[in-house]
């Protein structure tokens, strides 16, 4: 089953299928199988601390939770992506939704032996007739284990998102649009996933409550309230876990907002854009809406007339003179007052 990691890699079969919009049904099926298998493994390691029965329940519920999150959010993501201007087919959108969850399931499944070892290495939950002190200690250990699992799930989700990012950039050929689609996709999945995880709890199992497949009070309260309660009860690891998640999200956003560094060249009335790991593309010079220069850096904003999305490109030349020559080349063939004005202002 470890073949799935090859299929998901940037050179893998699923990557090619997503980019070329073919064999997507087969890819989706393989992804679902991967989620079921590796998600099941991780689920078992999540529940094993509470006991074998809880491990079985979690092994069934965790893959269902991952697949359910994908299915619940797929249609919303497809519709929102299209509304944002991404020319993706419905099938591509569906596979795109499954992608980060499959990557996350693979990563989580591969670290499940480590979590099983940890579950057996810490103080186990007490049996029936335990004293309040024993219960309190077990609750303490359980909260810490849950915090570690939250960090692991957040990290695996981030890794999955990073992998999807590479594909989206190649697929949409527009960094800003790819960011918006990814951000929307993450937001929708977070929304659907957090509430679904709340409804499907317990995964780890609280030591003071009997082992059960679903909680009787599943529809009471919600995920956000539980996180708030965890922070109030134990500001230590839960706070660290949430802070780490927030920092990772901010880091991701910062990385994404850095403009694309490319090589630019003018061929007739076309602007040639060469970027690392991407095929060369040409856009009409009339698409340029502004050119800015600072020392050796030239920043060009382009807009596809059929879309509302603006893409920002950054070209770094060896000398300021080369940057000036590049701007002259861009300005020369098409006389557009608004562009000339922008260039003058920046130079």
């Amino acid at each position: 089953m470890l073949f799935s990691s090859d299929a998901l890699s940037p050179q893998g079969d699923w990557t090619r299928a997503l980019r070329e919009d073919r064999d997507l049904a087969r890819s989706a099926k393989s992804m679902l199988v991967t989620i079921l298998f590796f998600g099941g493994l991780y689920g078992a390691s999540l529940g094993i601390w509470r006991g074998p029965l809880q491990a079985c329940f979690a092994a069934i519920k965790l893959p269902l939770f991952l697949a359910g999150t994908a299915l619940l959010s797929a249609i919303s993501i497809a519709a929102l992506s299209m509304a944002l201007g991404a020319r993706l087919s419905l099938r591509q959108s569906l596979v795109m939704t499954l992608w980060p969850l499959t990557s996350a399931a693979l990563i989580l499944g591969s670290i499940s032996p480590v979590f099983t070892f940890f579950a057996y290495s810490v103080t186990p939950p007490p049996g029936p007739g335990a004293t309040p002190e024993q219960l309190a200690e077990a609750m303490f250990v359980g909260t810490r284990l849950l915090s570690v699992h939250i960090v692991a799930i957040a990290a695996a989700g981030m890794a999955g998102t990073l992998l999807l990012r590479t594909n989206l950039r190649r697929l949409l050929r527009n960094r800003q649009l790819a960011f918006r689609v990814l951000f929307i996709s993450l937001g929708v999945q977070l929304l659907a996933g957090s509430q679904l995880s709340w409804l499907m709890r317990p995964f780890l199992g609280k030591p003071d409550q009997p082992v059960s497949f679903f909680r009787g009070d599943a529809f009471r309260s919600g995920f956000v309230q539980e996180i708030h309660q965890m922070i109030a009860d134990d500001a230590g690891l839960a706070g660290v876990a949430i802070s780490l998640g927030v920092v990772a999200l901010i880091a991701l956003i910062l990385v994404w907002f850095a403009p694309d560094q490319v090589n630019l060249n003018v061929e007739g009335t076309q602007l040639q854009i060469r970027s690392e790991n991407l095929p060369v593309r040409e856009v009409p010079l009339s698409w340029i809406i502004s050119v800015r220069k600072y020392d050796c850096q030239v920043t060009v904003q382009i807009r596809d007339p059929q879309s509302v999305n603006v893409e920002e490109l950054l070209c770094v030349t060896d000398t300021a003179k080369e940057a000036h020559e590049l701007i002259e080349l861009i300005e020369r063939p098409v006389e557009a007052p608004y562009r000339r004005q922008a260039a003058k202002r920046s130079i």
């Binding site: 890699s9 591969s110 670290i111 070892f117």
Partner: peptide, 24 residues
């Protein structure tokens, strides 16, 4: 030895996901 057995799957999956073309 036990650490190696526990950590090998995660090394293989993470490396493969991020571009390594390796066999187990």
């Amino acid at each position: 030895f036990f650490c190696a057995v526990l950590c090998m799957p995660s090394l293989h999956v993470l490396s493969s996901l991020f571009g390594a073309r390796v066999e187990l």
